[in-house]
Design a protein around this nucleic acid. Structure first.
Lengths: 160, 160
DNA sequence: ACAATAAATTAGGTCTACCTATATAAAGTA
DNA sequence: TACTTTATATAGGTAGACCTAATTTATTGT
């Protein structure tokens, strides 16, 4: 099985090599993206090369193999889903991105799928902006803005 | 800083020693709870003891120090929040619990706080069950049940 | 072209968190 | 009590992921 860290490297390589269709990533760039030293990148590059996920030869850039790219895209997609969810619940963007990195590994496919559904559900809801606004109010005041409102007619309308 | 694994052990010790007010946890129980071998538990018990988070002496049960209990309660609370959220978005209970274990570490306090808010928000929403039902429909059909409904009056009522 | 600089690599450690196999202590039972 | 079983503990080892320091290769500016 692929470790979380290995996934992080693959994702970083995908992101870097996608920048302006460059097609490859350099040790230094990966090190910077993941906040590790170049020597750590080299070590991982070797391992990933051994697993057939990247092409790595000394002093040449690192590229994803088709197999590696497939994995990287899955990881990136999970990342995006989680980031979107975190932003919906008003986690500041920089933190959302960071925490998506942390959450994107090891969650069961079921969980990721439900997160994905949630994001789509909220985005497609006809009252999306209102929903968000209510949530924001709730975050600030601790009270739901709809409290005490007679839902009778509302529900009839919605269910209608 | 405390590693994730250390947090897992503390949480397990809290859970076990809370069972019927027993007040302590045994090596074997912790090993079972965390799916590791007793020797690993002993190793961690030593470390946690060294950090002043548990009381550990050979062949005696392991107990949390006040400091350790404080940490354990924070971890457990995070766990509960995450589990609740996962269940709200319809992740099956067993998976929700498992994935909460995975997610509960290292997330920024901001993220946990927003998750907590989200859970409270949804629970306190006057139309909580309806909201859930819509989400379930969405999961099954991929379409929002409110699509095409005129929101004019509804919004007026809600904002009123 | 070639010295200076930058990037990449290697060698050799560290730390965490596991493990197996073995040894010792505690508890239970004939 | 002596024997067996179960629980704990220790020794020693592995693997992942990281580091620093030293070295080698590439690149660049003059």
């Amino acid at each position: 099985m692929l470790s979380r860290k290995a996934e992080d490297y693959l994702e970083a390589i995908l992101n870097i090599s996608s920048r302006e269709g460059k097609g490859y990533a350099r040790v230094k760039e990966i090190a910077k993206a993941l906040n590790v030293k170049p020597s750590s990148v080299v070590e991982m590059a070797r391992r990933l090369n051994g697993m057939g996920l990247v092409n790595y030869r000394k002093y040449e850039g690192i590229t994803l193999t088709p197999k590696g790219e497939k994995v990287a895209r899955v990881v990136k997609d999970r990342h995006e889903t989680i980031r979107a969810f975190l932003e919906i619940i008003k986690v500041p963007p920089r933190i959302a991105n960071k925490d998506a990195c942390i959450m994107e590994h090891e969650l069961e496919p079921e969980t990721i799928e439900q997160l994905r559904s949630f994001v789509r559900f909220v985005r497609s809801a006809p009252d999306y902006p209102q929903w968000l606004q209510h949530f924001e109010t709730f975050c600030k005041t601790g009270r739901h803005p709809c409290e005490g409102v007679d839902k009778g007619i509302t529900m009839l309308l919605n269910e209608g």
